[in-house]
């Protein structure tokens, strides 16, 4: 059960690991700003950190749009399909 203990250690040091992760993320963006892009096919190929912006914006958009669709139209109670089957 060593694996379990390792995971618990990681959870206990969650804050530290988050900071490490944020540093890595900042490093990636800086690296992307400095390294010459491999392609110049599209407008965004030249923007350093485009992947980071696009990933973050995509994530927020996906959650907001999907949840909005859910509340407006798609979400149904869990017994939605059952109520009518019951009187068969």
């Amino acid at each position: 059960m060593k694996l379990g203990r390792l995971l618990e250690w990681m959870v206990r040091h969650g804050r530290l690991l988050s900071i490490v992760m944020l540093v890595i993320m900042a490093g990636l963006v800086i690296a992307d700003l400095l390294i010459e892009p491999a392609y110049r096919r599209y407008v965004w190929d030249g923007i350093g950190g485009f992947g980071a912006i696009y990933g973050f914006v995509s994530c927020i958009l996906i959650i907001v749009v999907s949840k909005a669709l859910g509340y407006a139209l798609l979400y149904k109670p869990e017994d939605y399909y059952e109520e009518e089957t019951a009187d068969d």
């Binding site: 992760m21 993320m25 992307d32 950190g49 992947g51 995509s58 994530c59």
Partner: peptide, 14 residues
């Protein structure tokens, strides 16, 4: 580089 940025910043959003 592109893939790691995309994924890790998705994580930030989450």
């Amino acid at each position: 580089l592109k893939e790691l940025q995309l994924l890790l910043f998705t994580g930030l959003g989450f």
